[in-house]
Simulated scan of single mutants.
Amino acid sequence: MAKPLYKVTFFNAGKIYELYARRVGASSLWGFTEVGELVFDVNEGVVIDPTEERLRDEFAGTRVLHLPMQSIVRVEEVDHKGQSAIRDAQSGEKVVTPFPMPAKPR
């Protein structure tokens, strides 16, 4: 049987993060929730999701996140991994660093 998959939504630095993990539970640190075995898409092709890439870079080498309970918005057990996201806490709009476009010649 496959391990369960969780979508964890939490506040961090004025933004809302949506990550996927295989393990969520009570932390040994009082007042924290432990999120482990983070799941990211591994794209070998030409099309790369910049948000997924940014999250993978930010959490590279992270074995376990210990998130303060008050920062967690929602934990959902899901069947399939969706798109990870970073959203603005006020507007809910996705925060994506766009691909730089070349400047127009004058």
Rank of each mutant, 00 (worst) to 15 (best):
V95W: 01
Y20F: 15
R54M: 13
R22F: 12
K104S: 13
V75Q: 06
A89L: 05
V64S: 13
L5C: 08
N43T: 11
K3F: 05
Q70G: 06
F11D: 12
P98A: 10
V47A: 04
M69R: 11
T33Q: 03
G45R: 07
F40A: 06
L38P: 02
V46G: 03
E18D: 10
T97K: 13
E44K: 05
V95G: 00
R54A: 13
F11N: 12
L55G: 00
H66M: 08
L38R: 01
Q83W: 04
A21W: 09
E58H: 03
V47F: 08
I86E: 11
R87F: 01
D41C: 08
T97Y: 09
I16C: 03
A103T: 12
A60D: 15
R23V: 14
L5P: 08
E76P: 06
G14H: 10
E77Q: 15
R63Q: 07
L19I: 15
V42Q: 10
P100V: 11
I72Y: 00
V46K: 05
K3T: 11
N43F: 04
F10Q: 05
E58P: 00
I86Q: 06
W30N: 12
N12L: 13
A21F: 06
E44H: 05
E18H: 07
E37T: 00
S28W: 08
D41I: 09
F59E: 12
T9G: 06
V95D: 02
K94E: 15
L5I: 10
L65Q: 02
P68C: 03
E76L: 13
P68T: 00
G45Q: 06
P105F: 07
T62R: 01
A26E: 15
V47N: 03
T62G: 05
A103G: 13
H80S: 10
L55Y: 09
K7I: 04
R22S: 14
V42R: 01
I72E: 00
R106N: 11
I86P: 06
M69G: 05
F10L: 06
H66C: 08
P98G: 05
I86G: 09
G36M: 04
G36I: 01
S71P: 06
